[in-house]
Design a binder for these strands. Sequence first.
DNA 1: AGCGCATCCATTTTT
DNA 2: TGGATGCGCT
Length: 746
Amino acid sequence: MTELNEPQQLAVTHLDGPLLVFAGAGSGKTRAITYRVANLLATRNVPPFRILAVTFTNKAAGEMRERLRGLAGDEVVRDLWVGTFHSVCARLLRRYHDVVGLGRDFVIYDDSDQKAVMTRVLRDLGIDEEALPPKLVLSLVSREKREGRMPGHSKSELTASARQAYEAYQKALLRANAVDFDDLLLYVLTVAETPGVPGDELRGRFSYVMVDEFQDTNLVQYRLVRALSFKTQNLCVVGDDDQSIYRWRGADVRLIRSFQHDFPNATVVKLEQNYRSTGNIVNAALGVIEKADTRVEKKLWTAQDPGEKVVIRAVRDEREEATHVVGIVKRLVARGVSADQMAIFYRVHAQSRALEEALRAADIPYQVLGGVRFFERAEVKDLIAYLRLVQNPKSDADLERIVNVPARGIGDKTVDRLRDLAAERALPLIEALDVAVREEQVPTAAKKKLEAFQKLMSELARDAPTLRPSELAEEILERTGYKQLLVAADDAESDARLGNLEEVVGAIADYESDCEEQGEVATLGGWLERITLAAAVDAMKDAPKVSLMTVHTAKGLEFRAVFLTGMEEEIFPYRGVSGREPEELDEERRLAYVAITRAREHLTITYAGQRSLFGMTRYLEPSRFLGDIPHDVAKHEGTLERYDSQRSYGGASRYGYGTGSSYGSSRPSLAPGTRVVEREDVPPDDDELGIRPGDRVRHQRYGAGIVERIEQGAAPMVVARFGVHGTRRILASYVTVERRARGEVW
DNA sequence: AGCGCATCCATTTTT
DNA sequence: TGGATGCGCT
């Protein structure tokens, strides 16, 4: 353990009692955790299955396993409980399922499954979807669950109708022998907090509990780890409040900040030496995070050289931003930096388009993480629905999805009838189907179709045990006629879909060989669980490609070169419809901190003077976070200053800037509230906004209008006449100028 | 059932 | 801008 610094050693050797480790970005956290587990195994003689380590992603869990394999050996690692909260809970719930009234083969419903169930529930309850959209109810329900409240809880924060919906939704899930993500945790917590035998057993199951990324833990997760470590108090939590970025999903930073309050005897260790980044990058990050309203004091430092300066680059718009970034990517590639060591970050997915276009034009291979996920494609979901239905015939959402896919003449009317029947007798659809056929509850034609479907499903169920999961998938594609249909269609899209389906079968086969390697049995249930609990990063390929992703998905990753794009007010920090509480702004700041600290050697930050996003072009100020980066670690390039049309794209003014006088002190343009705009055809002084009276502007709701006057100020307003909508006063940022700049180069 | 067209909407997403 | 969704038409 000699390769550990002092605080790391402390973290590794403090084994008993509560321990809180603040692990700064790039401070060798994984290393410390891994060594700590190895140390436990070596010195405490703990059976591996009594050690629980919860990580943030499957990827992190995999990495930890991998590293432990080298330290502790194969068999030992196999018995350790290492995984995400959800996967660990899924596994536990397979053992304690009966305590909460679930069948052993419960399936896990993802977002879209949940939405389907909730839509159905609301319809059945006669709740107006306008007044209470399924998405909203689901988010409310999720909040209830994340805060530990099952339906009927006395402290429910729901309105009467939402409460009703919650109850019905939960019933529907139980009837389908299904759980949602929150249920996995909440059910296990329920077991763990139940007095008596099963709860006792669960509470004593683990001797040592470790939690990674503790700053992103929600209340239920916190209570869960507390319960699981209750007997021994051997709870080690590792995290960094500066990297808490999932508040909107229920993460509660206060849990890490006040850990010592709940565990007064906790030992606290701070890992503050950064091994990842150059000095300039560390200091840039520090400059940003130190301005946070609230944080636990930590001083990230590095022994590394300052390295190259952080480049802060002004660009005209998202296209120039993209070409600029791609230009550097090319240069770095030429210098021998592998493409997979480069990443481009943005705040919102919508920003990826311009970047993708530029990369494609330059013929640079790239991968976009997140966005539309593979497992969300229709055909993939269809196949999975079949598989899940075989696994758990009660899963109504799956049955509804595929009962008529491919079309087999079971129309809405028939399905409605089935649903009624199911509701009347409180049966899952599959059983309602039996009833309908047996008791002749449907017209003869429909009955025939239903019988055919029944036969299909029962044959699949019959054969499933004798088939490997991948074979079963193939069988489904064959016997349902799904494959033939796509083959017959013979167009590009169908080909793509076939390809996707083959990929699914291939993925199952991969899983099977994985299992084989580990000496485990590959089961359908195992695979299904793995994919529902998988994330975008898990699918990240190591192929030499530039990675594009949101800052959120970048957490936990590192790259030699990072491009942080779209550093403008409104974009980053993002400002949506809701207001911005200080705590939300802090979270944006932390997000910026996370982004910066991903870079090892090279960091380019770009901000555009104007940006088209969601169909409207807006003029934007540089992000306030840029102003927090110390001047001596950064090099400012480019300008948003107005310039005349000839010179503007000539290059001199573009590249000449920033090398001369100190950018920061002489140019207050980075101060919040200053609006810098570039427009070629506008006399400098009458046009801060790029909008003048007489201009034609477009507003999303009101359409085209003619500007009557401009009201300057902190939030400039445009007064414009919009045909039938009359004269309106609108925030300038919500209109698009339709007048094209003279000689504009696009 | 499948389509074309209008309309509405718009962070972030470990699981 | 584009994507998701819903509706009406064939």
